[in-house]
């Protein structure tokens, strides 16, 4: 299921025209016509961009129907399915098989009915992993039926690969330019300061890593170019050289990565006066190819390292530095892990 924040991303995402085999198109070099900040929820242009190519869609449908069939079989005749994969069923085994059937049926229906089947295919991949683990368990305890179990495991592996490939292709946004493919994030925050001041604070790029915890460093090379290092999930870092493709003081900054980047990316930061003297609405739009593709992105999501959340965290820090002069800490967030008062926590270190 998609969380509200994710669908918000989709709402403001902009579909780009199909660009077969075109070299990197800097997103920021598009004419920066002002667009409405939000579109009505029922208007989901990103879905149009995300609509799969016909071949992928058909494959997804086939996988969906396979899921429905297998799920029904597991629910209705659990014993027979169990025997087929070399498992002896007791009452408990039957219950497990029925649970798996329900899961299978749900993901099948999800794949067939969702407007964007990609996430459901990823759910299937997760399910495949569970199945393999269960089969592995059976293989270790049931000497005689090993061959059948091995065959079943091979089948599950095959299906998992198919799920993953289709999921990968459907989660990607076909037709987006190279740097815009993969992840597209839009996040906004309102800062209680005038646009000129907010813009100027952001424009001092080398200062950003001091409070944006997902950035490690920024070095300004010249008026337009800068070198960025960011923290990636699992303790990795990624680096790229970026060039400003547009710089309108008090309004907008647009950049793109230069060839040789670890992660190709492009984006804009807009500064608009909020209505009624409520300060400045800062909107970051970011597109990039995650290293490792959609799979790592799905994993990152599990660990709150999903890019939308990262951008939101960093925007909040930016707001705090402008409004209160620093990033507020609490006892529990001042250091990683357990906080000082917890029984297992080490004494604080000064």
């Amino acid at each position: 299921m998609e969380s509200p924040t994710e669908s918000a991303t989709q709402v403001t995402a902009t579909p780009a025209p199909p660009a077969p085999a075109r070299p990197t198109t800097p997103a920021g070099s598009r004419p920066a016509t002002p667009r409405p900040a939000t579109l009505p929820m029922h208007h989901r242009p990103a879905d149009a961009a995300r609509r799969p190519a016909r071949g992928d869609a058909r494959l997804a449908d086939a996988i969906g129907w396979f899921s429905v069939g297998l799920g029904l079989a597991q629910l209705v005749v659990p014993d027979r399915v169990a025997r087929l994969v070399g498992v002896e069923t007791g009452t408990r085994g039957r219950a497990v098989m029925r649970t798996l059937g329900a899961r299978e049926l749900a993901s099948g229906i999800g794949i067939l009915t969702a407007s964007s089947p990609g996430p459901w295919l990823w759910a299937r991949v997760a399910g495949d992993v569970t199945d393999l683990a269960l089969l592995g368990n059976v293989a270790t305890e049931e000497q005689a039926r090993r061959r059948r179990t091995a065959a079943a495991a091979a089948a599950v592996l095959g299906i998992a690969a198919l799920d993953a490939v289709t999921g990968e292709r459907l989660t990607r946004q076909p037709g987006m330019p190279q740097a815009a493919r993969g992840i597209h994030v839009t996040r906004s925050i309102t800062v209680n300061r005038q646009p000129d001041e907010v813009y100027a604070f952001w424009r001092d790029l080398e200062r950003l890593p001091r409070f944006m915890r997902h950035l490690e460093s920024v070095q300004v090379v010249d008026e337009r170019r800068s070198r960025w290092t960011a923290r990636a999930p699992a303790g990795l870092t990624v680096a790229w050289d970026a060039e400003l493709v547009e710089d309108r003081p008090g309004e907008l900054l647009a950049w793109r990565s230069l060839p040789g980047a670890d992660v190709q990316n492009a984006g804009t930061v807009r500064f608009r006066p909020a209505p009624g003297g409520r300060g400045t609405e800062v909107t970051v739009e970011l597109r990039y190819d995650p290293p490792g593709g959609a799979m790592t992105e799905q994993l990152a999501r599990l660990f709150r390292e999903e890019p939308g959340q990262q951008v939101r965290d960093d925007l909040r820090a930016f707001k705090q530095v402008l409004e209160i002069g620093e990033v507020l800490l609490s006892d529990a967030t001042a250091r990683p892990g357990a906080h000082a008062a917890q029984p297992s926590a080490p004494e604080t270190v000064d």
Partner: peptide, 21 residues
């Protein structure tokens, strides 16, 4: 310093929850 505090809605301060997410 935030809009909520300036409007007197102190229990809605926008900057005082590090775990806002």
């Amino acid at each position: 310093a935030c809009l909520a505090c300036q409007a007197g809605m102190y229990s809605l301060c926008e900057n005082s929850n590090p775990n806002a997410w």
